[in-house]
């Protein structure tokens, strides 16, 4: 439990780490209407693709530093020597990132959804989808950033982004499902299922990778 507290403290005191991604997300959501003719129909049509891509990009930015800083200053070394389970440490790190960055972004996303689509039920239904998908994005990008730990985050993104394409397709389908009032809960369970697999496997693989980096 101490680990979660410490990681929380570390992230919270580093405002560029959590405030930066949230602000970038907000800026993207504000910037995109400027690129199209301002009629409500067009905005509504492209809103969700921008929303998913923005969430994806911002999670990419947020995880850039997730292991690098701890690796460079030796904290990861200390974690690996200590009796803590390294994959638990990694799992809680990702959880904290989700709590501090993913959660506000999901809330912001649904607020913007309300602002642009202007239907209550839409933004209520999109909120849990955003919550789950940001958590999945964080996990997968952390894996990528662990792989390319000292080699810059571009490489990590290059190798993990293709793996997220199926998720983007599902997210596209979810929007259609909400739109036509089809099987929304089915999609939610599908996403939850994916999340529950990823949440177990990614920290395990990542801890193996991190140990290899520490050698």
């Amino acid at each position: 439990m101490n680990i979660i507290r410490f990681e929380f403290l570390k992230l919270l005191k580093k405002s560029r780490g959590w405030l930066g991604p949230i602000l970038v997300f907000t800026l993207i959501m504000i910037a995109y209407p400027l690129t199209v003719e301002l009629t409500d129909i067009e905005l509504g049509q492209s809103f969700f693709s921008i929303l998913w891509i923005a969430a994806l990009l911002v999670m990419m930015l947020a995880t850039e530093d997730i292991f690098l800083e701890d690796f460079n200053d030796g904290s990861l070394e200390q974690y690996a020597i200590s009796q803590n389970n390294l994959s638990f440490v990694i799992g809680s790190k990702i959880f904290i990132y989700w709590l501090v960055i993913g959660l506000p972004i999901s809330a912001l996303g649904s607020i913007f959804c309300f602002g642009i689509i202007n239907q209550h039920n839409f933004s209520f239904q999109i909120f849990p989808v955003l919550l789950i998908s940001t958590y999945i994005f964080l996990n997968v990008f952390s894996f990528g950033n662990a792989l390319s730990l000292t080699k810059g985050s571009i490489l990590g993104i290059l190798v993990t982004l293709p793996m997220l394409l199926p998720l983007l397709i599902i997210l596209g389908k979810v929007v259609i499902a909400i739109n036509f009032d089809l099987n929304y809960s089915g999609f939610l369970f599908l996403l939850l299922g994916i999340l529950s697999i990823i949440i177990v496997i990614i920290p395990m693989i990542t801890s193996y990778i991190i140990r290899a980096h520490l050698e």
């Binding site: 894996f143 792989l147 190798v159 293709p162 793996m163 394409l165 199926p166 397709i169 599902i170 596209g172 389908k173 693989i205 193996y208 990778i209």
Partner: peptide, 20 residues
């Protein structure tokens, strides 16, 4: 590791892209 993770993913990518 990456090849193995990718090999799990390739069928998923194919299926989902077809679905899309």
């Amino acid at each position: 590791i990456l090849v193995l993770v990718g090999s799990v993913n390739i069928p998923i990518i194919k299926m989902s892209v077809e679905w899309w």
